[in-house]
Design a protein around this nucleic acid. Structure first.
Lengths: 266, 266
DNA sequence: CAGTGGTCTAGACCACTGG
DNA sequence: CAGTGGTCTAGACCACTGC
């Protein structure tokens, strides 16, 4: 607890909380806690605190930013509700991570028809392919690259209980993921996004999915053991860092004879 | 832990409708604002304020519950984040409604491949069928009824820009929806859930969806103008009131050649 | 202008974690 | 036990709405 010698001067004016605010033209009003949120976000982006680490306590941050604890609290509340931070009472506030999470696949919404995921045991992951290639027009558009830019392409099959369920094609911009190989992928235990965090300093924070029904091709017949023409769920995902840059394009083909995509609408 | 004397005297049902209490040796700790939230929820359930109406101001509620405005505020914050209430600065806090909403279909996540929904003009809704029937085993299970209980069954086609895109089969428990006819459905402008609110006092608050890929049947060939075997998105939805009772089962078949199901992962 | 929700502060106390 | 996040209060002031 910090004590302030505030009794020295009788005429000390209260600190102006609006000193940071820029010349306020009419349009935008940004409350203090939003500005604090932005400052914390900047520290996260700059890597001041790594995923899994704790950030300073609310009191410390309040002192650092010269605001009250309640204002810091409200800023952290929003970041926590966006899954960027994780609060643990009595321990501290931590930078969210894809590692050390109870759920293996935070972004995977496919679940077995009965029971919860995990009841079938751990997923088996087989890398089919991992190579450098040139971004096609649509891949480039999704990743905010130019057509022909170098990308890494990964193809893998996920099996649950011994049955192949998911075929995934993944595209990554080559530059941030320089050095990613099939072996590193295959040897790594845990979520792929956790590897991205620890090895490439890339944190996936948010994703958008577009879902369609498509007929199985020969490719799927071979890898997913379904007949050509069988309806499959096509799930295209673009994942974003917390700079809101698209950093991964993933096209998944899900078998839905024993599993289904689950979603909650609020 | 503080407890509200009003809570005991005012609420007849057991005062634990909102916490998922585990079999905990130590009694659960429920903060004041959670109890206030429960009281407001009870008033909502009891219909003290109708959808679209404003609830009392924070100061009024604070006086009524004998707590500070901040505590009421936190309770309302949670209810607003669950889309049960809607805050409008300078005006008041309002009970959420499916009517008078900018978005026509709050729970429909199918969007055109390019552009936003609505760009195709209003949806055309054709009631194919509306009849009483007996709940099959799976329908009964979804609606927490018994097999053979009377249900209302509605089948309709939604068309966008003149093209049939969605075939929906809807099952409703007969009792709460007594008097629902194809004509009332067909004549009503606006979301179906808005009609449920105004005519049957049933408010859908939350829903769970299970999504699969299925081949089109002859039924779909006729109504959706697709060939038998064409992959369709099968979306099964169970919608809940804010008593958390399942009140609607809806099985939709979506064409995804020009539209896709969009989802955001946080 | 009054009334509403929204922000910010300061301080007290509670619940949880770990040494 | 000290340190953390979580709750609650009381009061001041700001931003927005509508009369």
């Amino acid at each position: 607890m910090q004590t302030l010698p505030e009794l020295i001067s009788e005429s000390s004016p209260p600190p102006d909380p609006f000193e940071q605010s820029v010349a306020n033209s009419t349009p935008a009003f940004s409350p203090l806690y939003q500005q604090i949120k932005g400052l914390i976000l900047n520290s996260l982006r700059a890597g001041e605190w790594k995923p899994g680490e704790s950030i300073p306590s609310e009191m410390d941050l309040a002192a650092r930013f010269k605001v009250s604890q309640g204002t810091v609290r409200k800023a952290i509340d929003e970041l926590a509700s966006e899954n960027l931070l994780l609060r643990r009472q009595g321990k501290g506030t931590f930078v969210a991570t894809h590692a050390e999470q109870q759920v293996q696949f935070r972004f995977l919404k496919l679940v077995p028809d009965s029971g919860t995921r995990g009841s079938e045991g751990p997923a088996q992951r087989d890398i089919i392919e991992c190579r450098r290639s040139r971004a096609s027009a649509d891949v480039a558009r999704a990743l905010a690259l130019r057509t022909g830019d170098t990308v890494l392409q990964v193809r893998r099959v996920l099996s649950f209980g011994g049955t192949p369920i998911i075929l995934e094609d993944i595209w990554l911009p080559a530059t941030p993921f320089k050095g990613l190989t099939a072996e590193r992928l295959a040897n790594y235990q845990g979520p792929m996004y956790a590897l991205f965090e620890t090895e490439f300093n890339v944190r996936m924070v948010r994703a958008e999915e577009s879902i369609r029904a498509i007929p199985a091709l020969e490719l799927h017949e071979q890898l997913l053991k379904v007949k050509v023409g069988t309806p499959l769920l096509s799930v295209e995902r673009i994942a974003y860092t917390y700079r809101d840059e698209p950093m991964e394009l993933r096209r998944g083909c899900y078998r839905t004879d024993t599993h289904h995509y689950h979603n909650t609408l609020g």
